[in-house]
């Protein structure tokens, strides 16, 4: 595999069993976020697994609901959470996720993971950061935000561009002030405002026209609808940010998490193991190939 790719954690970093058999975790808290989206806070039942399990910002787990199947969900919580809870913000759209939506505190769910590459938090130290996300693209970036806050002095200017459909769809609103207090400038936009909205209406990529960035020292992390990602990349490249410093998180159908089931391929890459986080430079040659 090409050395351009970020290192993924070895799949056995959790333990060998995770490759096929999920570990069991109890739902200890459910936070309703917006209509049809909640965050499930999980605690592994086996104390050894709880002790051993670690994830990096941007990685995902396969959540398993017996009888329904598995769904790939990025972790949205602080990787260094003191209670060792692992948060997953889930949108209820498919068979598995809709039924996860029916679970209650105390219910048990299967977890395999963590899988995939992470946001390159070490590599981008010293840089100005633009985090650009839309809709359900914010949760996979939230662990990175926590990491940045914990290590604020290691990063330069940090800008979070976040777009949602309507003001009601904005996630984690109670945390926004906290994030801003750590010198993260937050630029929120919605597709459609309401009577109380006096913020920006528009799409995320257009924000690049509203502020100045230093292309020599800026890194972009982006996650969200594919169309938004595409235009964030264009705007980044147009400002001469090198493709190696634009990091995208991709989504495809996944069954295994370890490059075995084949579903998530794009060119030579398995998104589950060589991604989901890629430097755009490795995807660049495929970006305009239709339906690839």
């Amino acid at each position: 595999m090409t050395s351009l790719l970020p290192q993924s954690a070895p799949p056995t970093a959790g333990h060998p069993g995770k490759l096929i058999q999920p570990d069991w975790a109890e739902i200890v808290r459910i936070t309703p976020e917006t209509e049809g989206i909640s965050t499930f806070w999980l605690r592994f039942i086996d104390p050894q697994v709880r002790e051993r399990y670690r994830f990096q910002p941007g990685q995902f787990n396969m959540l398993y609901l017996p009888g329904y199947g598995e769904a790939a969900i990025s972790m949205s919580s602080d990787p260094e959470d003191e209670e060792r809870l692992v948060g997953h913000t889930v949108r209820f759209v498919g068979t598995v996720t809709k039924n996860i939506g029916r679970l209650k505190v105390g219910d048990v769910i299967g977890v395999r993971g963590p899988f995939g590459t992470s946001w390159p938090m070490k590599q981008i130290e010293g840089r100005d950061l633009v985090l650009a996300c839309g809709g359900i693209g914010l949760p996979p970036l939230r662990p990175a935000i926590y990491h940045i806050i914990r290590n604020r002095e290691k990063y330069g200017k940090v800008t979070l561009l976040y777009g949602a459909r309507t003001p009601k769809d904005l996630m984690y609103p109670e945390e926004h002030e906290e994030w801003k207090s750590h010198d993260i400038s937050m630029e929120i936009s919605v597709d459609r405002g309401d009577e109380n909205w006096d913020g920006r209406v528009g799409v995320v990529p257009m924000w690049f026209y509203n502020f100045r960035i230093d292309p020599r020292n800026t890194a972009v992390l982006t996650c969200g609808p594919e169309i938004m990602i595409r235009f964030v990349i264009y705007e980044g490249l147009a400002r001469r940010i090198p493709a190696e410093r634009i990091f995208v998180s991709l989504e495809r159908n996944m069954k295994c998490g370890q490059g075995s089931c084949g579903h998530c391929q794009i060119g030579p890459y398995f998104i589950c193991k060589d991604g989901p986080v890629f430097p755009f430079s490795v995807l660049q040659r495929y970006v305009n190939v239709e339906e690839y």
Binding site: Y64, P66, G67, K255, C261, G262, H263
Partner: peptide, 26 residues
């Protein structure tokens, strides 16, 4: 060709569930 899918089944009173791997195709 190695692609596979996984399917799930349960017994009638939902006390047993199986996960089965089947060949898939691109």
């Amino acid at each position: 060709c190695f692609c596979w899918d996984a399917t799930d089944s349960v017994n009638l009173n939902a006390t047993r569930a199986s996960r089965t791997r089947v060949w898939d195709s691109c």
